[in-house]
Simulated assay, not measured.
Amino acid sequence: MVLYPRTDFKLISTGVFSVFSRISVLTSHVYNCTNERNGYTCKCPTGFDGPRCDGDPCTSSEMLPQMEERSNPYSAIGSVTDENLAKAWYSAPEGMKMSDHAPPSGPACGAQNGLWSKMREGTSEYICLPFKDDTCKSMTTMKSMLCDGRRVYGIEKALWTSSYCFECRPDPIDLLFIQDVSSSVMKSVYDEMRLFIKYFVGDIDASQDAHNVALMTFAKEPKIAFHLNTYNTKTSIMSAIRSVNGTGGGTYLGKALELAASDIFTENNGDRGDSKNVVILLTDGRSKNTADVYKNVNALKGTAELFVVTSVISDMFADMPSSALSSNHVFTLSDTDGERFTRVILPDRFCNMAP
């Protein structure tokens, strides 16, 4: 179903989005469609979804073309021609989203008029033509969803030489650190792990509305230091990290992964349903009961994306099936390719423009 603007917005009909008043242009999958002011609603048959009832947006989308041009607010007129876009689900590269502010006056994003998103409310994006003082003109709606880190849009073609503007504006992540504090971890390695967490958190936008952070430690038993919603400022998060100390004892990583999967990423403990879940495991690469580790890596995979930062690439990780943990998700503390790690973990630093 397509959602509609709230009544506190003034709508000005200019014909730029004329497709929304023409149900006849939709595919034959659509039925029970009702015209609305500046839009329509459709009841889709079982198994279909989307602006044209054309399937699951996460599997039926294609990459929106000309992303480099449409992400440049000053790109020349004519390099993007969205009036030729077919009505369909389109995905954007990870970290890229529709601009949330008006582009510069005049030609923008490869066309005469750059379209931008006034706001997102649930699965509805409120799309505007630029107007003076960053106000919204001719607002209409489209549906958008998050699919495996990429945002997918139900785009109808734009008329009057308009293009959809995009920028590097990723969704916040819910981030869990799991630190090995068992007796097998040498003090020098323990100190490197703690510095890694300190610098990583210090280098991101950690706050209630941006990246949320949780911390666990493990030895013989796992322990939750704080949940995703315990602290909402970088200062309080950093203070809590400094207060956590090692305990020593045996190394049971499997138990920690099991607790992470069952307890951390829940609504009561701060998980945001529309945010990507990421786990960074810091370990020396050793653990009791490796079969339990493999089992719980697979269990966690259904909840979050796991990255390992280890002092050595032990057999436990080297022999792990790639279906459970990809080799490009395993790093060493001495890894000097910091940019590669940042690109993988923090798409807000380097939006991935590759399809």
Rank of each mutant, 00 (worst) to 15 (best):
Q112G: 04
N35E: 09
G106F: 04
G78M: 11
V297Y: 01
T283R: 00
G250I: 06
D56K: 02
R37C: 12
C33R: 07
D348Q: 07
Q179H: 02
V185G: 05
K157Q: 13
R151N: 13
C351H: 01
T161D: 15
C109P: 11
F166Q: 01
L333C: 07
T266L: 09
D203E: 11
D54I: 13
R340L: 07
G78A: 03
S124Y: 06
K295P: 03
G254P: 05
F177G: 01
F20D: 00
R272G: 01
I241V: 12
G55T: 10
I77T: 10
S117P: 10
G246P: 08
C33P: 12
Y252G: 00
L159Y: 15
F200R: 00
R22L: 12
T336K: 15
I313R: 05
S243P: 02
E125A: 10
D134S: 14
M1K: 01
C109S: 03
P5F: 00
K198R: 06
T310P: 08
M320Q: 05
V16Y: 12
I264D: 12
C128T: 02
R169E: 02
S287F: 05
Y31W: 11
G106A: 03
R6Q: 09
F9D: 01
N84F: 09
E125L: 09
G302C: 06
I23N: 10
D100P: 01
G95W: 00
